[in-house]
Structure formats: C-alpha cells, structure tokens
Write a protein that binds this DNA or RNA. Structure first.
Lengths: 217, 217
DNA sequence: TAGATTGTTAATCGATTAACAATC
DNA sequence: TAGATTGTTAATCGATTAACAATC
C-alpha cells in the first residue's frame, strides 16, 4: 500500500528522530509498540505517527501495533542508509575535524576524501583519512565519481568552490558555510546547517522565555 | 504598531537569514530595498517578507520600501543580539572546540566557561578560554549565574549532566547530544542541533533526487 | 498629483489532529 | 467473539500567498 504523493519535507525531517527512538527501544529489548505508546515517548500525537508512517506503507498491524525491529529497519531503508553515496569533506579546520569524526557510513554515505587549503593541515590524518590539498579536488572528483560535498569552509571560499564542484557534476551539498547555494543554483540538493542561525534562534527564545517569566512572577 | 500574537516558531527561524542577507546588503552599500527585491534575492515571496516583518512592527514606508540599515538593526534587536546571557560549553572534544570558536558574543551570548571530563584536555586553551574540569560545573554555576548550557557531550553523559544543570537553575540548552531533553523536562528552552539527523535527511533527499532523475533520463 | 510599495485583510494551501470503519 | 489498534478519511488548525486599500 505504499503511496507516494504525500511525502513532504516535514515528514522526512521527522524520520531520523523515529529511527533514533526505535533504535533505543530495540536496544532495550522492546518487541512491539503502539502508536499511542510511541507518541507518549516522543511527545507527539499517535495520529501524526500513523500518518507519517503511512506515507511509506502499512507497517503496523491492527490490534497489535508496530513491530519495533521491523519498523526500525523500514525507516533505515526509507532514509537510504544502506545505499552509500561517495562523499568528500572540504575544510579540515575545527569544524571539519568534528564532522569527519561522524560515522558517515552508518548514515548512508561513503566518505572518501578530505581537502583543505591550509598547507599546515595537509598530510595530517583525521579519523583514518589523510587530508589532501584543495587543488586535488578537481582531479579526485574526476577519478572517483563523487556525488556529495560537505562544505566546512568560510563564506568567501564557498562561492568559487561551489562553482567548481557543480561543474564537476556534484549535485548534493551538506552546507556549513554561510554561502546560500540554493539561491544561485537550481536542480541540486542542499541541506544547510547554519550553526549561527540556530544560536540566534536560541537567543530569541531564551530572551523571550525570560521576559514571559518575569511577567508571571 | 508592534503586535504580539502572531510570532510563530517558523517566523523566528527565518529571522537569522533575514539578518544575514541584510548584513550583506549593508556591506555592499545598499541603502533601501523593497520586499519584492529582497524576495528575489532570498528566493521568498514578497508577501511572506512583509507578513514576517509586520509581526514585530511597521519597519517599512509605503512607496519607498525598507531602509536596509534600520531593518538590519531592528532584526538584531528582535533576536536580542545585544543582550548577552551567560553561557557555558560542556565538552571540549572536536565538536566542542569547533563550537567554542563561534563568535558567541556577536550572537547574543557571553561564553564564560568550558568544561570537559577528559583530564588530557583540561587546562588547554581554546579561543582564549581555559578548559576546566567537569567537576567544577556545580561550583562555577553557583558563583556565576549561568543561564545557558551548550551540550557537546555523548548521549550517555547527557542524562545526569542535564539533571545537574537543571537543578542549578539552567533553563536553556543548545543541545548537540542525542539526549532528548524536551521529552523529560518542561518549562525549559531547548534548541537541538542533531548533525546526524541532518545528514540522514540529506541521505533521503540525495537518493530521492537520484531516483527521480533516473526516471527522467 | 501619480506611482510605488507598504501594512493588512481575505483566500488558499498544507499540515496536524480527530474520528471511525476496517481488521487483526 | 470482543478488544485493541491500525489505516484512512474528514475536520481543524496554522502558515503561506494573493489582493487591495492606505499612504508615503
């Protein structure tokens, strides 16, 4: 019964969190769970869980609920965690280093190269990978059919770098830079992580929270 | 004409991006901009921009548009970037290091302490701050009226750490750990940054994109 | 004054929640 | 069979877009 027209970005963005909670339940040895119970655990509504899951198929069973292990694997499949795409990281500064330590393989990617402009960092090893010179990017991509680039570079470098990467056929970016790729290019996939945007949002929320609590007390 | 009932989280989350684009325009020397022009630049609709801004007040002028400098500062004020709240970072691993290098001060925070469990990292200096022993957290918070904690620790430590921090009166978290604070505590502010969730979302989108393009060609 | 563009109300669209019949 | 819980349709809610009168 897998339908296809209802998969909005809001639904997709909730899948990793389902995956995480189901993984925990699995570890705890929980065999089955109802949408009601899962909703309580995750602070969602049972309705939303059933709606979300039914975008992809009927994974549950009436009167019983959902099999935790089965659902966990189904979601991993939907997210494509078993299909690895070749990925490079550009920028080996503090952030780049932190990112290279993420377990890309578990998340559906095959990290095959790290590049950095600064000669001092070139040749060092991060998580088993040797940091290469940025000038090697073009050659490396032509040799290796790279599909995804992770951008951990300052905004000023991002501009020309993205132009190069796109010309080399890269169509997907995990973007930590403040360069707004999506504004300049169409028909590519960009997942932005703007840490300072997140921190500014927190700034608003903290101060709003303080204001409201002052009034209350 | 500042209203107050319409400020949804969707609107708040767009403010940092407005701030960023307006900052760029300001640097370029642009004095005024209409919602139509700004919408083109940011790939939004003019309607949305006007709606968003009018949640906070009438910053524009009919027939003219918006004064870039004024709007930039208004948004900074709304986000509370000038009102610094005392903040500590916990965890000085790769990610912690990267995060401590963010300019907290520019984003509305006053970073006053870094803590780490691993003795090897204690005493080292990151961005001018000496890394302290985690056992100092309690004493430090009692002395310094800390309001925000940034969690760059593994999931296993987060549990008891959050319990301690909440007992010390901390009510806001910038959470990089996979511990889901919001599920266990009410009346606190949590801004989550789950890098692996973001990467899984990218996994879905990349593979979905590839699938759609295969069909097309 | 005429032209431009805002602020704001109304219309549309999408996402979440509620309800319930289907079914295990 | 009776009870539980899903899958799915319908109702509600919220967010985005369109339209336009107000006004600089």
């Amino acid at each position: 019964m897998a339908k296809n027209q209802c998969i909005s970005i809001s639904v997709i963005k909730r899948l990793p969190r389902y995956h995480r909670f189901l993984g925990e339940l699995l570890t705890k040895g929980v065999k089955r769970i109802s949408s009601r119970e899962l909703a309580q655990t995750m602070k969602l509504t049972a309705s939303q869980i059933r709606q979300d899951l039914n975008c992809f198929g009927g994974f549950g069973q009436q009167g019983y609920g959902y099999n935790v292990e089965l659902l966990y694997h189904e979601i991993a499949n939907i997210l494509g965690l078993h299909d690895k795409v070749k990925t490079i990281v550009i920028g080996a500064g503090n952030l780049g280093k932190a990112i290279v330590n993420i377990d890309f393989n578990k998340l559906g990617f095959d990290l095959i190269g790290i590049f950095e402009r600064d000669p001092l960092l070139q040749g060092t090893t991060i998580n088993g990978q040797v940091v290469q010179c940025s000038q090697q990017i073009e050659h490396f991509c032509k040799e290796n059919q790279v599909e995804v680039a992770v951008l951990c570079v300052p905004k000023e470098s991002a501009n020309t770098l993205v132009e190069l990467l796109i010309s080399l056929g890269i169509k997907a970016f995990w973007n930590y830079s403040h360069y707004d790729i999506g504004v300049y290019y169409d028909d590519i996939v960009v997942e932005n992580v703007h840490l300072s945007d997140s921190l500014m949002t927190l700034s608003y929320r903290v101060k709003d929270f303080k204001k409201n609590n002052e009034i209350k007390f």
